[in-house]
Simulated assay, not measured.
Amino acid sequence: MRILLAEDDAETAAFIERGLGELGHVVTRVAGGENALHLGATETFDAIVLDRMLPGIEGLDVLRRLRAASVRVPVLVLTAKGGIADRVAGLDAGADDYLVKPFALAELAARLNALLRRPPISDVITRLAVGDIVLDVLRRDVTRGGRPVHLQPREFALLDLLMRNAGRVVTRTMFLEHVWGFHFDPQTNIVESHLSRLRSKLREGFADDPIETIRGAGYRMRADG
């Protein structure tokens, strides 16, 4: 596996580079955000390990720019910030996984292997249509009745999950696990607030709400849109 490592702490970077190298991975190491952005956008890697607090361009800004440039390489964010809000910010920026310092090299390697086991983009559905709503995964855009619907990344992910399960109930737990990567309930209204904004945007200019609230169970997108 060819890995881009963006980490400005020399001791941590050397530890990761040596450990992953011993496991047979080829590691390209950079210490600043500008170099991370340049290499990530112009060279081919199997995965990127990205420190959040980089000099120059902050790690999440690097990640946002890579995603905006359609770089879809799996990205694991490393950070000393382990709060829920920090993890949500990393996932919202486009991270595929999030590991809090200090960490064990074995866990880092296992998480990278898990990211590489995900099916390649060519093996998954990249365009969804339910009723008059169309979602294009590759272009990251949504239309309803041919009119663009401008969604934030997490709203897009919510709609993607609902459309893939059209006609079936999607529970709060499913949203938390698939959209935020939480395997526990953080006891916040994060799902409800994002869904409220999504529904408002989808209803704008239309009389009906394509998303149903199933009391005590979750939410369901009508199969006919």
Rank of each mutant, 00 (worst) to 15 (best):
F15D: 00
I16A: 07
E17G: 01
E17T: 13
R18H: 04
R18C: 04
G19S: 14
L20K: 14
E22D: 14
L23W: 04
G24T: 08
G24V: 04
G24I: 09
R29P: 00
A31H: 08
G32N: 15
G33R: 10
G33Y: 12
E34Y: 08
E34A: 09
A36W: 11
A36M: 02
L37N: 04
L39D: 07
L39G: 08
A41I: 05
A41K: 13
E43P: 01
T44L: 11
T44E: 12
F45P: 05
F45Y: 15
F45K: 01
D46I: 03
D46G: 09
V49M: 04
L50H: 15
D51H: 11
R52C: 03
R52P: 00
L54I: 13
L54G: 05
L54F: 07
G56W: 07
I57F: 05
E58M: 10
G59V: 08
G59A: 09
D61V: 09
D61I: 07
V62A: 05
V62M: 01
R64K: 15
R64W: 06
R65C: 02
A68E: 05
A68V: 03
A69W: 08
S70A: 15
R72F: 11
R72T: 11
L76S: 09
L78D: 05
L78K: 10
A80N: 12
A80P: 01
K81H: 12
G83E: 12
G83K: 03
I84P: 00
I84R: 13
A85F: 02
R87P: 00
V88T: 07
V88S: 00
G90F: 13
G90V: 11
L91W: 03
D92M: 02
A93D: 08
D97Y: 14
L99Q: 13
L99E: 08
V100G: 02
V100W: 09
K101E: 07
P102T: 12
F103E: 07
F103I: 09
F103A: 06
L105G: 03
E107G: 10
E107S: 12
R111C: 05
R111D: 06
L115P: 03
R118P: 01
R118G: 00
P119K: 02
P120S: 11
P120I: 09
I121L: 09
V124L: 10
V124R: 12
I125S: 06
R127E: 05
R127S: 12
L128M: 09
V130N: 04
D132M: 01
I133T: 15
D136T: 06
D136K: 03
D136W: 02
L138F: 06
L138V: 15
R140Q: 14
R140E: 13
D141N: 13
